[in-house]
Design a protein around this nucleic acid. Structure first.
Length: 497
DNA sequence: GTAGGGTTAG
């Protein structure tokens, strides 16, 4: 019963688009005369991303190497960012351009490519890029190793990350305090705090650990809600004659809130004042957010007023904190009032402001107003992000408005903002609520599409879709999905079907 | 781009 499915997500039900005329006319002019190089416009990166998405890999090379078109690192980076959620296409683009007769990739583009490859856990490709950088004498730089280490840690290979750091010198790079702090931070941000702390204890002497190093470790312990340990780190740094900074104190303060220790947080703040700390905008914002989500909305507002009284100017983050608090613990109406107040006072809402308000509106079921806010973003020079779409899609699904969710998803498919892992997960789950045969077919198509785009579905998702298809008599399609496993065998091995 | 505040559910 495909006829009930709306236009906007037809692309799921149809074969992939065939190669079309490369660039939208006028967006880019390709000429054979180098003298007439077109000037770059804002739409170039969008048009190129679209071309890459739609064209056949074999013909792509020619289109990209047409003489007369001027590539710049900035343009290449913009295109890579647009293709961020389509790793394979992004890398295809990068590799093709790497064979361009005259254009040579910049270090930052290599970093994007390495990041994308490693995120897909294709570490071999990432290292191959590093080798290519080396042969072009563009790197590697400390940043290159930071990226690789970060991806190893988030891929569950923290030990490899540490190894990479320890082998930096083999690539001609000095291990210094900066790179030491970076690896510590990478480990801490992924909650491998013990490992970071051990590394820290081994090397703090050699690298002369500084305030930053200690702050990173203290923050790590705050992230895993071990504030006593964070306090211990603070004590230790003082003992070793290293001065804590406002960053240190704000880190601890946030740690107390995160651990739901509101009283301790307040006492810590009073202590800061007693010690004549110059309470800054971060301190206040931390408290506005902390007290609010802890349920003390009045206190949150009082802190906001106190900040203004003390002559500390609230910035967007401060407003966002208050808006978020009101959405969660008060009413979305009041949150919107604060949003409007900020605009009236000349404050410029950013992506987070919008996402917070939109989520708040969705949460109370006011989808109409949420969409209105989405439309307003452009006035502030913003475009809905993948998070914006995900929120709206999620709440449409929760409300049972599957068609509208798919319609939203269709808008992303236009290429303005590619869906990410969360988008697919939310949408695939939603395909089970109506218990309709055709919904499961869509779920299957979504599953194939996400794998195609370099996302790894959870084993659960995979089995759920397969079972659903088999139960609804779609044996053939289930087979097709199983075949996909062998195609992507290496990547999907963890699924153990 | 060595560190701190603001965005994903109940």
């Amino acid at each position: 019963m495909f006829h009930r499915v709306s236009q906007s997500h037809l692309h799921l039900l149809l074969p992939l688009p065939k190669h079309r005329f490369p660039f939208p006319r006028n967006a880019i002019t390709i000429t054979d005369e180098p003298q007439q190089q077109p000037s770059l416009t804002e739409t170039d990166d969008a048009a190129i991303a679209k071309l890459v998405l739609e064209s056949d890999p074999r013909s792509l090379s020619e289109s990209l190497t047409k003489p007369g078109f001027q590539w710049t690192p900035e343009l290449v980076n913009k295109v890579l960012k647009r293709l961020w959620n389509h790793g394979p296409k992004a890398l295809q683009f990068f590799k093709h351009l790497d064979r361009h007769p005259t254009y040579i990739h910049s270090t930052s583009s290599f970093h994007h490519a390495i990041d994308i490859a490693a995120r897909m856990r294709d570490y071999n490709v990432a290292w191959a890029f590093l080798g290519r950088m080396k042969s072009l004498r563009l790197g590697p730089t400390p940043r290159t190793f930071a990226i690789i280490a970060e991806r190893y840690v988030s891929g569950g290979k923290a030990h490899r990350a540490v190894k990479v750091f320890l082998s930096m010198h083999e690539h001609g790079l000095r291990q210094d305090l900066n790179s030491f702090n970076t690896i510590l931070d990478v480990l801490c941000k992924s909650k491998r705090v013990e490992m970071a702390h051990n590394l820290f204890k081994v090397f703090r002497g050699r690298f002369k650990a500084d305030t930053v190093s200690y702050n990173i470790i203290a923050n790590g312990y705050c992230l895993i809600k071990r504030t006593p340990m964070a306090l211990q780190i603070l004590k230790e740094m003082v003992e070793r004659g290293i001065n804590p900074s406002m960053v240190t104190y704000n880190t601890l303060l946030k740690g107390y809130f995160r651990n739901n220790q509101l009283r301790e947080a307040w006492e810590f703040y009073l202590e800061m004042k007693k010690r004549k700390c110059e309470i800054d905008v971060v301190t206040y914002t931390t408290m506005i957010h902390g007290f609010g989500v802890g349920g003390e909305v009045k206190k949150s507002r009082r802190v906001f007023d106190e900040m203004v009284r003390e002559g500390v100017v609230p910035n967007v983050a401060s407003f966002n904190a208050l808006i978020q608090v009101l959405c969660k613990k008060d009413s979305v109406e009041n949150a919107v009032l604060v949003f409007e107040e900020m605009v009236r006072k000349g404050g410029v809402p950013n992506l987070i402001s919008y996402n917070v308000v939109i989520r708040g509106l969705c949460h109370v079921g006011d989808m109409e107003k949420a969409l209105k806010f989405m439309g307003r973003m452009e006035k502030h020079g913003l475009q809905p992000s993948v998070q914006t779409y995900n929120v709206v899609i999620r709440y449409f699904c929760d409300a049972g408005e599957i068609e509208k969710a798919l319609e939203m998803f269709g808008k992303m498919g236009d290429g303005s903002c590619l869906p990410n892992l969360d988008t697919y997960n939310v949408l695939i789950s939603a395909m089970f609520v109506r218990k309709k045969c055709e919904d499961l077919v869509v779920a299957g198509k979504l599953l194939i599409e996400m794998v195609d785009r370099g996302f790894l579905p959870r084993k659960f998702t995979f089995n759920r879709v397969l079972n659903g298809l088999v139960l609804t008599g779609n044996q053939d399609f289930a087979q097709e999905i199983l075949r996909m496993q062998s195609k992507y065998g290496r990547v999907l091995r963890h699924l153990k079907l």
